[in-house]
Write a protein that binds this DNA or RNA. Structure first.
Length: 319
DNA sequence: AGAGTCAAAGAGTACT
DNA sequence: AGTACTCTTTGACTCT
């Protein structure tokens, strides 16, 4: 149903504009509609669209409908059709095009413009107003869709960057672990002697050697010394997440990883599980990303490392 | 038949 | 109070 056809209606005359074609793209399908400024033929509150053939043939009243409907249904049906209450009908292609162009210029409708448009198109000002209202609604919907698309694109880009960063982090962790291991192996003898020295310093019965295996996983091939926190002056230690019982399997939660150092810092890195709920974790971790950086190592930090205890990576550094 | 589109109505709201 | 707007819903119609 395009191009000058109407769904129904009882008042049919012409849309004529003496010196102006409504659409620059009028086609045969549009019946070469013209708009009349003397559209007093639109008295109702609804679209009383009137038609006239540009070639001069007058589709007045019945004869217009005969062109697409009457032949099929006959006189009785047509009379009944005319009597039935007005039904909604679409605006013609030309009218819509005209309105569209007007909308492009300004999507708000001042009263004067509304009246002028209504006059030009042979519509009720109310119809023009409604068309603009609906058009603004459609425009807004489009805008929202556009916004959504661009936001989604940004989100996807961020997500990819985030995942790349995670991979990079994992890679660096592995590298650090390898290098630390290597470094410690090289200085094993020195470490052992220092460990013995520390053991001597620890209060009795509170010493414990860190096993080579933590949480069932082989970790550093190195002997470290652990003393309970009470053995040391707390001012010498900074521990992040001290409530966590997960540092070292089987040790008191406040147990410290000790290395020859003046102070120690231990913090955990949340392990994101992208496989479970990727998006949620991504958002969560993006939100928490600042927390990751929170335990800034002191400026004079000189040693750091990484332990996996109970599936939780534990970072530490010390000086 | 059901989904989608569009013109229009109605309720609620903001502004003068 | 009047007007014009947004938002939601309704009903007619088209399309697949």
């Amino acid at each position: 149903m395009e191009g000058g056809r109407v769904y129904g209606g009882s008042n049919i005359s012409s849309i004529l504009l003496p010196n102006q074609r409504v659409s620059s793209s009028s086609t045969a399908d549009n019946n070469n509609l013209l708009i009349s400024p003397s559209s007093s033929a639109f008295p109702g509150s609804r679209s009383m669209v009137n038609f006239s053939d540009a070639s001069g043939f007058n589709f007045s009243g019945k004869s217009f409908f005969r062109s697409f409907d009457y032949e099929e249904n006959g006189d009785e049906d047509f009379d009944e059709y005319l009597r039935q209450p007005e039904k909604k009908r679409r605006l013609t292609v030309d009218q819509v095009e005209f309105l569209e162009r007007s909308f492009e210029v300004e999507n708000k409708l001042e009263p004067q413009r509304k009246v002028q448009l209504a006059k030009d198109l042979g519509l009720q000002p109310r119809q023009v107003a409604i068309w603009f209202q609906n058009r603004r609604a459609r425009w807004k919907t489009k805008l929202l869709e556009k916004d959504y698309d661009s936001l989604k694109a940004s989100y996807d880009t961020l997500k990819i960057n985030y995942e790349n960063l995670l991979k990079e982090t994992e890679k660096l962790k592995t590298e650090v672990l390898t290098l630390t291991n290597q470094h410690l192996l090289n200085g094993e003898e020195v470490e052992n002697s220092e460990s013995l020295h520390l053991i001597e310093q620890c209060p009795t019965q509170t010493q414990q050697l860190i096993p080579n295996e933590v949480s069932g996983e082989r970790l550093l091939d190195v002997t470290a010394v652990v003393c309970k926190q009470e053995s040391f002056n707390s001012s010498n230690s900074d521990v992040v997440d001290t409530d966590s019982p997960r540092y070292i399997n089987g040790l008191h939660s406040s147990a410290l990883l000790m290395e020859p150092a003046n102070s120690s810092h231990v913090f955990e890195v949340d392990q994101p599980d992208l496989s479970q709920d990727e998006d949620e974790n991504f958002s969560k971790n993006m939100y928490n990303s600042s927390k990751l950086e929170e335990p800034n190592p002191p400026a004079n930090s000189c040693n750091y490392g990484f332990l996996a205890a109970e599936d939780q990576p534990v970072w530490f550094w010390s000086c």
